[in-house]
Computed example of a mutant assay.
Amino acid sequence: MTKYTAEYMLAQVKDNIDSTDPTLEALKLYPIPELKRDLSNYDRWERVLDFHLQYYGLDVLVECMKVEYLDGPGRDDFSTTDNWHRWQRHCLHAYSIIYSQAAKVIEEGCLANDWAPISHCPHDLFEAIRDYRQGVHNFN
Rank of each mutant, 00 (worst) to 15 (best):
K3V: 12
T5S: 15
A6R: 03
A6V: 05
M9E: 07
M9Y: 04
M9D: 03
L10A: 10
A11R: 14
Q12I: 00
Q12G: 02
D15N: 06
D15F: 09
D15I: 01
D15T: 04
I17Y: 02
D18V: 04
D18I: 04
S19V: 10
S19W: 07
S19Q: 09
S19Y: 08
T20K: 10
D21E: 12
P22H: 03
T23W: 01
T23L: 09
L24H: 03
E25Y: 05
A26C: 08
L27I: 07
K28W: 02
P31H: 10
P33L: 02
P33M: 10
L35Q: 05
K36E: 15
K36D: 01
D38N: 15
L39W: 09
S40Y: 02
N41H: 10
N41R: 11
Y42M: 12
D43N: 10
R44G: 06
R44F: 05
W45K: 07
W45P: 05
V48G: 07
V48F: 09
L49P: 07
D50C: 13
F51I: 14
F51T: 08
L53R: 03
L53G: 02
Y55Q: 02
Y56T: 06
G57M: 08
L58N: 10
L58W: 13
D59H: 15
D59R: 14
V60N: 13
L61S: 10
L61I: 15
V62F: 05
V62P: 04
V62K: 08
E63Y: 12
E63L: 15
E63K: 15
C64A: 12
M65K: 07
V67P: 00
V67S: 14
Y69Q: 12
L70P: 06
G74A: 15
G74W: 03
R75N: 07
R75S: 13
D76V: 08
D76N: 14
D76E: 11
D76L: 06
F78R: 12
S79Q: 05
S79A: 15
T80D: 08
T80C: 03
D82M: 10
N83T: 02
W84D: 03
H85R: 15
W87V: 01
W87K: 14
W87C: 12
W87Q: 04
R89G: 03
R89M: 04
C91L: 15
H93F: 12
H93I: 11
A94F: 09
Y95N: 02
I97F: 10
I97A: 08
I98K: 03
Y99D: 10
S100A: 15
A102W: 02
A102I: 04
K104H: 09
I106V: 11
E107G: 08
E107Y: 06
E107A: 04
E108N: 13
G109Q: 06
C110I: 09
N113R: 02
D114N: 13
D114V: 00
W115S: 01
W115E: 01
W115V: 10
W115F: 12
A116C: 09
A116L: 06
I118W: 02
S119Y: 00
S119A: 13
S119L: 07
C121H: 00
P122K: 06
P122E: 01
H123T: 01
F126R: 05
E127R: 14
E127T: 09
I129R: 01
I129P: 01
Q134W: 06
G135D: 11
V136N: 04
H137T: 02
N138K: 14
N138S: 11
F139G: 01
N140Q: 11
N140E: 13
